[in-house]
Amino acid sequence: MGETIDLKLHVWRQSGPNAPGRFEDYTHYAKAIPTHASFLEFLDIVNERLILAGIEPIAFDHDCREGICGMCGVVINGRPHGPRKATTTCQLHMRHFRNGEEIWVEPWRAKAFPIVKDLIVDRSAFDRIIQAGGYITARVGSAPDANAILIPKQVAEEAMDAAACIGCGACVAACPNGSASLFVAAKLGHFNSLPQGKPELDRRVLGMVTQHEKEGFGGCSNHYLCEAACPKEISVKWIAKMNRDFIRASLRYAPPVERKEGYG
């Protein structure tokens, strides 16, 4: 089974949204952890032992466990997704911790991400931001020809960089202002860079930024901790583009006028 390590584990336990939470010391259950285990597998192992000991297992979010779904995500020793750059919690392996290392695990902390239980937070604010403009109003159906709309290689690449956002919320977790600017900017940047997204650019940026405000996220004050925490390494340059597009849209956007039938 290979090498194992013992860890000094402290986990945030909170039974419900309004219940008081506190750190529990699970060092006793964090011994002989295989270094090949991922961080989530480590929590699985601890949970199995907690169940055997008659303690309620730690609640944490997870889904694909291959770093693309954005479900997992806890703050490990003050850093969202732990100490490794560009790595989600599920892709973080225990070999990156020293034997005997102290580990403190907490949920994302932001007003707009209320804690559901233990390490699970409610990130549906992100869904509502997407509903406010993170889409293209287009006929769905068969896929169009790949070369029907010509997109320069560099534009396609950059849009893809923005689209790499998995919506995990690490940017919010890292931000001292609890701002989701990087998430909103990445989603906006993805659509607004491409010709398919441009017709609705103004409406999209106004709608999504407004929703971001209404959800109670803070504003960006250029700390750039989001970029450092992002497992997909989304650049803060997208926030600059969002700011530019938002300022421009605020100056020029007028809501469409309803047109009567038959006047084409």
């Binding site: 902390r109 932001a110 931000c175 001292p176 109670g216 803070g218």
Partner: peptide, 16 residues
């Protein structure tokens, strides 16, 4: 506003 948006802090602040 930022303070309201971040009501609780981490045990370790910002080792980014």
């Amino acid at each position: 506003r930022a303070r309201e948006a971040k009501p609780a802090h981490y045990r370790f602040e910002e080792r980014m």
